[in-house]
Every structure is written in structure tokens, then in C-alpha cells.
Design a protein around this nucleic acid. Structure first.
Lengths: 149, 149
DNA sequence: GATGAAAGAGATTGTTC
DNA sequence: GAACAATCTCTTTCATC
């Protein structure tokens, strides 16, 4: 898959605003809308583009606390069953199987510290195989972006 | 800001695919396109919607390694200057000021382990105030989603 | 809040170069 | 790859309910 300068402009515009009309990009680039359209279809068929998403502001829903939690498992064989349970907790928005101290590393969103405590002590600690957790609360996020094209 | 069932349908459809036409949502819900359009404008004006983004698949660009890095600072007064330097590293896609052991906690994307090593040992370790780092490499990501509406 | 209508803008496709 | 043109669909606004 070769990506030229025009493709990069298309991608950068749509990463910024996924609802940007193809014709508006066409006018910026200086080629026809049909040509931009054709390129976009090609980019979508390649695996480069994963989709288009509306971004929700969690704060507007009252989710003011972001935290990362390192989860220790008694045995790594309990990974898949633990993940299954974590998927049922809507506040868990990312999960990783990681090298290092933890077995599972998750990102969670909570409305307040009480909810966070409940989530940690009840929802997560009660998952079979989870021995203990280690929590990092994000007090300030300064960088949040996608990889540069 | 009150969100009713129709708003939820609008949001859920656009979270899935931000380029879904308003009229397509209108047909699903059973009200006019103009009404959906009006609701969407209102949702956009509230701070609930943060925007619309094309999602890039980093793997398609060769970024196969995701890692989290805890960064220790000599002094927390070096936070803002360190962030400034981290912003210049395109592989750093998230940064958090966190409670717990680390001062800064970042998410990075790398093409391979060599790049990761270079990033840690050169780019990050050379930032003034950084004493040491602790790295967790993600071997498997099972959950990646937004908060449920 | 919702509607329908209307005008303008955009998407999409086939043909041609 | 891109352009052009035709057609269809969507967006946006406005008067009305």
C-alpha cells in the first residue's frame, strides 16, 4: 500500500473531522471529488482505515476520573476468563496483557472516587483469579492523539 | 443536558460510524431528517460530543508495538517542561500525570523493539528531569471502547 | 420538538481520456 | 489515476404545526 501526499491530506482532514465532505477535500487538493472518492474507497479497503467514530466527552457524562489499574492474577491461565468478566464492566475501556509486573493492565473511567473504590474492591477484586491490583489515577492528561501520518 | 432514547440512538450510530448520514438514522428512528439534524446540532453544541475522527490502524503503518511507560522525574517541578518535550515525540500518543509511583505515565506506539529501545534510551531518558522509566509492553489488547451511553 | 418542502451541496457511478 | 457528467441522496434551513 503506497500512500502519497494527496492520500495524506485526505487522511489528515478526516482524522481531524470524520464528517468532512469529500468535495471539501477535493477543493483543497485541487482535484475532482470523484478522484478523492476513489482514493478514499481504496484507503478504506486497505486496512489502514479502521473506521470513523464520534468521540464522546466522558466528562460531560460525569466520568471525571481516569485511572489505570495493574491487575495481578494468581495464574496466567486465568487470563481469558478474567477478560470475559472485565468486558462486562462498562467502565473498563481498555485492557492489555502486558509484560512486567502485572498480568492485565486496564484503563477505567469512573464518575468519582467512590465509584472507583467500588469498582476496584467489588467488581474487579471479585473476579476469580485476581489476587490484587495497583491503581494509578490520572490527575491531568496533556497528550491524546493518534499516530502521525 | 437531557438525553432521551432518540439521542442515544443517534449517538450510538455515530460512535459506530461517524459518517452515517442523518437521513439513515432518521429512517431507523422513524422521525424526519430535519428533527434528527436539529437534535444532532444540539448535542454538538453541548459538550457531550467531542468531534468525529477517522481511526487509523497503526499496525497498517508498521506500528506493531504498544507500550505503557512510567516515567520518574527528579522533581515534579519538571513536569511541564518534560511534557513539552514528550509532545515532540510523535510515538507518544497519551500522557498522564498520575498518582502512585510514577510522575508521568505515557502510552507509546513503536514499529519494533529496536525502535522502542531507542525511544526509551535516547528520546525519553535524555529529557531533562527524567531519572528512570518502567515499561510495560502490551502483548494483546482485548478491550478498546468508549464509555457506554 | 417535529414536519414537509425546497434549494443547495454532496455522493456515487459509468464513460472517457 | 483523473475528469466529466448524470443521477441520486443528503444537508440545511425555514415556515408551520
Amino acid at each position: 500500500m503506497k500512500i502519497d501526499g494527496i492520500d495524506k491530506i485526505i487522511i489528515r482532514r478526516l482524522v481531524k473531522d470524520a464528517r468532512t465532505p469529500v468535495l471539501s477535500i477535493a477543493r483543497e487538493v485541487g482535484i475532482s471529488g470523484a478522484a478523492i472518492h476513489q482514493r478514499l474507497r481504496k484507503l478504506e479497503k486497505s486496512k489502514l482505515i479502521d473506521g470513523y467514530k464520534m468521540v464522546i466527552n466522558p466528562k460531560a457524562l460525569g466520568y471525571t476520573t481516569t485511572a489505570y489499574v495493574g491487575v495481578f492474577l494468581d495464574s496466567s491461565s486465568q487470563y481469558s476468563s478474567a477478560i470475559k468478566r472485565l468486558k462486562e464492566i462498562p467502565e473498563v475501556i481498555e485492557s492489555h496483557y502486558t509484560t512486567g509486573n502485572y498480568a492485565i493492565f486496564i484503563k477505567i473511567l469512573c464518575k468519582n472516587n467512590e465509584d472507583l473504590m467500588y469498582l476496584l474492591n467489588k467488581d474487579i477484586q471479585n473476579i476469580k483469579g485476581v489476587s490484587r491490583t495497583e491503581t494509578f489515577i490520572s490527575l491531568d492528561q496533556q497528550i491524546d492523539r493518534q499516530i502521525t501520518i
